[in-house]
């Protein structure tokens, strides 16, 4: 037995040739049916796994390309989703505004903001309506949540609106519950407050509306809510910080109330009195 093994090792090349040749000849000599069977067996057992491996490699390459393509699509779809979300928010806001416009009993001019005050604290904006739409100086300007400011300058097709954030802009306000009257003030354009007499009934959460005094805003326009009462041990006044109901930082659409300011009538009367003198 050992000598056979030694012989095979010694003449391994010849043995290999003979083995391969015999296998080939056996396949050649086989009847066609057996050849087909052998071919099928070889294909399945030897070449098919190789083919699968190559297929997998090709697939892996395709997956890589597909992955890159899908990543691109994901980026595109993400952008589209973001755009749709933005449109949805805008749609909801416009629906709200439309509802506000419907609810508003007064004649209003819907306007869009075309320019903003470049200062860090937004004090004024420019809107796209002017004399062409009948805008007059001191007309009140409101937003969906409440008052925004007043028109201070009218141009042919644009108007400048001084916002309530401007420390120079003061608005007469009223506590809806207790009817206490004060002035809406701000020193830095961010924190609003009103000074009330110490005996006035003002509490946290009270709704603040315009008082109708001052000749600009009609009575009852929402302004904000009392955020906090600060007792500064002042014997005469107490300070109520007010949180405005309008988000002034994110203004986009506004409404100019077509209300002839009482200031005009007052001025006209003053002028006529002066002329009479």
């Amino acid at each position: 037995m050992r000598w056979i093994l030694e012989l095979i090792i010694r003449y391994r090349v010849v043995v290999a040739v003979l083995a391969a040749s015999c296998a080939s000849l056996w396949m050649i000599a086989s009847p066609p049916l057996r050849q087909a069977k052998t071919a099928r067996l070889l294909t399945i057992s030897v070449f098919y796994p190789l083919q699968i491996t190559f297929d997998q490699m090709t697939k892996a390459k395709n997956i890589y390309a597909e992955n890159r393509h899908l990543k691109g699509e994901v980026a595109l779809l993400t952008a589209q989703v973001a755009q749709l979300k933005d449109e949805k928010i805008e749609n909801e806001r416009l629906r709200g505004l439309f509802g506000f416009e419907q609810r508003m009993p007064l004649d209003i001019i819907p306007v869009s903001i075309v320019a903003r005050d470049p200062s860090p604290v937004l004090k004024s904006v420019v809107v796209n309506a002017g004399k062409d739409k009948g805008v007059l100086t001191f007309m009140p300007v409101v937003g969906e949540g409440g008052i925004a400011g007043k028109v201070v300058q009218v141009m042919p097709s644009l108007s400048q609106v001084q916002l309530i954030r401007d420390p120079l802009n003061r608005t007469s306000i009223l506590v809806r519950r207790s009817r206490a009257v004060s002035i809406l003030e701000t020193e830095n354009g961010i924190d609003f407050f009103g000074l009330f007499r110490t005996h006035e009934d003002v509490r946290d959460g009270d709704t603040i509306v315009t008082s109708g005094l001052g000749g600009i805003y009609p009575r009852g326009f929402p302004v904000g809510v009392v955020d906090r009462i600060i007792d500064e041990r002042d014997p005469l006044f107490k300070k109520a910080t007010i949180k405005p109901s309008l988000d002034i930082d994110h203004l986009e659409e506004l409404f100019i109330v077509r209300l002839p300011p009482q200031w005009n009538a007052f001025r006209a009367q003053l002028d006529s009195l002066q002329r009479q003198r």
Partner: peptide, 22 residues
Amino acid sequence: LGLGQDLFSTSILGQNALSKTI
């Protein structure tokens, strides 16, 4: 190699295998 050629061609099974072995 010959066997592979035989399987994927119309030749007789073993024909290329034998010739390429030699």
